[in-house]
Simulated scan of single mutants.
Amino acid sequence: MSNNEPKAVVELSAKDLTGPGVIFCPNPKMALWSNHPKVFIDVATTGEGRCPYCGTAYRLKAGEKLHAGH
């Protein structure tokens, strides 16, 4: 495994996203001891985003479509 590989990958459905296509990390399934400041990660733009603190990658499941909020 290279240093560029994410620590973990979380597959998301469109309904998992909040606001304008973002997810927050740490997520509710993470252990309390591994907490870091809450950050919002944009996954709507490219379909994927990575946490700058823990390296967890968040990506949309294949075939998931986001509804435009315009």
Rank of each mutant, 00 (worst) to 15 (best):
M1V: 12
S2A: 14
N3K: 01
N3C: 02
N4G: 14
E5Q: 09
E5T: 10
E5R: 07
P6K: 07
P6I: 05
V10P: 02
V10H: 02
L12Y: 06
S13A: 14
A14G: 13
A14C: 12
K15L: 11
D16F: 11
L17V: 05
L17Y: 03
L17D: 03
T18F: 12
P20F: 12
G21L: 12
G21Q: 12
G21Y: 12
F24Y: 15
F24R: 13
F24D: 13
C25R: 02
P26L: 07
N27Y: 12
P28W: 00
K29Q: 08
M30E: 06
A31F: 11
L32E: 08
W33Y: 08
S34P: 04
S34V: 09
P37S: 06
V39Q: 06
I41H: 07
V43W: 00
V43K: 00
V43A: 00
A44C: 02
T46R: 06
G47W: 01
E48H: 07
R50K: 04
C51K: 04
C51L: 07
C51A: 05
C51E: 04
C51W: 04
C51N: 05
P52E: 09
Y53E: 04
Y53R: 02
G55C: 03
A57R: 14
Y58T: 06
R59N: 11
L60M: 04
L60V: 02
K61S: 06
K61Q: 07
K61Y: 03
A62C: 03
G63D: 01
E64W: 08
K65H: 13
K65Q: 14
K65N: 12
L66Y: 05
H67S: 15
H67L: 15
H67N: 15
A68P: 15
A68I: 14
G69N: 09
G69V: 11
G69P: 03
G69K: 08
G69A: 11
H70L: 13
H70G: 15
